[in-house]
């Protein structure tokens, strides 16, 4: 694939790249959608965050009042803390577990297809279903704790779901359960693409298998890992349904997340100004994370070429 496209690029020198009417026309709808719907809505959102909009959007100007209210709001600050903690642990957990599962399946185990299906199955479920299932399982009076206690271990306690300090980790557990199958699939595809000769060479050199995975295979999987991280990161930013289904943001406000803050204020609390301010902060955070990567990946190489 890669070599084909490179050959094609070589065949069309830069000077011959002219304006192609048909291609531009075909791209026009997509361009309009990107400009009007995505960028337009972004600009509109940012604009509204400087207004006093309540139930209906109004275009007055109140400066940064919504932002100062936002940063004085304890719930929003807790939300930000939670999403950072969740994001780091969720992505790390999915990558580690997904990689291990992929390596396990790569050992040419029997009934591989069955295992693959089982591991990927959670991903086929929505976050709402995942959240409800884990809510039942982790509920101290219904789930795991009750079962173990009924078995005779009276002092067994697993109350993370109702414990303000630990509830975020239950979200991580449910999230990792949900997402690691996807990582497994992506990385397994990568593992299958690793050249057999590399393995033979390593075996001749007498390198232990774990070392081959860690020092040779893992670096080869770089692009796959980036893909997995991007996919996981999007579900971190938009994390909402899992929280609503599993904890309602509670106990108290201990498991609130920014997307839920935006949704609650946008609709239930009729406060478009504050909601769009929070949405704008989410946009800025995403941009701040993406900017160095975009720079390193696209802007700097071009500059060097020129």
């Amino acid at each position: 694939m890669a070599s084909v496209s490179m050959a094609a690029e070589a065949a069309v020198p830069r000077t011959r790249r002219r304006w192609n009417a048909a291609a531009s026309l075909a791209l026009l709808p997509a361009a309009v959608i990107v400009l009007v719907v995505y960028l337009g809505c972004m600009v509109w959102t940012v604009r509204l965050s400087f207004s006093s909009s309540k139930l209906l959007p109004v275009l007055d100007w109140v400066g940064v009042r919504q932002y100062s209210r936002l940063f004085a709001n304890e719930r929003f600050l807790i939300s930000v803390e939670n999403i950072v903690l969740f994001g780091v642990l969720f992505i790390a957990g999915c990558l580690v577990l997904g990689f291990l599962l992929a390596v396990f399946i790569d050992q040419k185990v029997r009934s591989e297809a069955a295992f693959r299906t089982i591991f990927l199955y959670p991903y086929a479920m929505s976050f709402v279903v995942t959240g409800l299932a884990w809510q039942w399982f982790l509920n101290p009076t219904l789930g795991l704790q009750k079962i173990v206690r009924d078995l005779g271990f009276e002092s067994f306690t697993f109350d993370w779901l109702v414990n303000q300090d630990m509830v975020v980790y239950t979200l991580v557990i449910a999230g990792v359960w949900h997402g690691s199958g996807l990582v497994m699939c992506i990385l397994l595809a990568g593992l299958r693409g690793v050249d057999e000769d590399l393995w033979k060479a390593a075996r001749i050199d007498g390198i232990p298998t774990w070392r081959v995975y860690l020092s040779i295979v893992l670096p080869l999987l770089g692009p796959m890992i980036v893909t997995a991280v991007v996919l996981l990161a999007t579900s971190v930013v938009k994390l909402y349904d899992l929280v609503v289904a599993m904890t309602h943001g509670g106990p108290g406000i201990a498991s609130e997340v920014p997307a839920k803050f935006v949704m609650d204020h946008f609709f239930e609390r009729n406060n478009i100004g504050l909601a769009t301010a929070a949405a704008t902060m989410m946009l800025i955070s995403v941009a701040a994370v993406l900017a160095p990567w975009v720079y390193a990946r696209y802007i700097r190489p071009q500059g060097r070429r020129a």
Binding site: K54, L55, E74, R75, Q164, G250, P251, G252, I253, A254, D264, H265, E268, R269, N270, N271
Partner: peptide, 16 residues
């Protein structure tokens, strides 16, 4: 609704 929501966050936090 704004006041209802703002006080609600405080009440639920206190309760828990």
């Amino acid at each position: 609704p704004d006041l209802v929501g703002a006080t609600r966050d405080v009440i639920t936090q206190f309760w828990s």
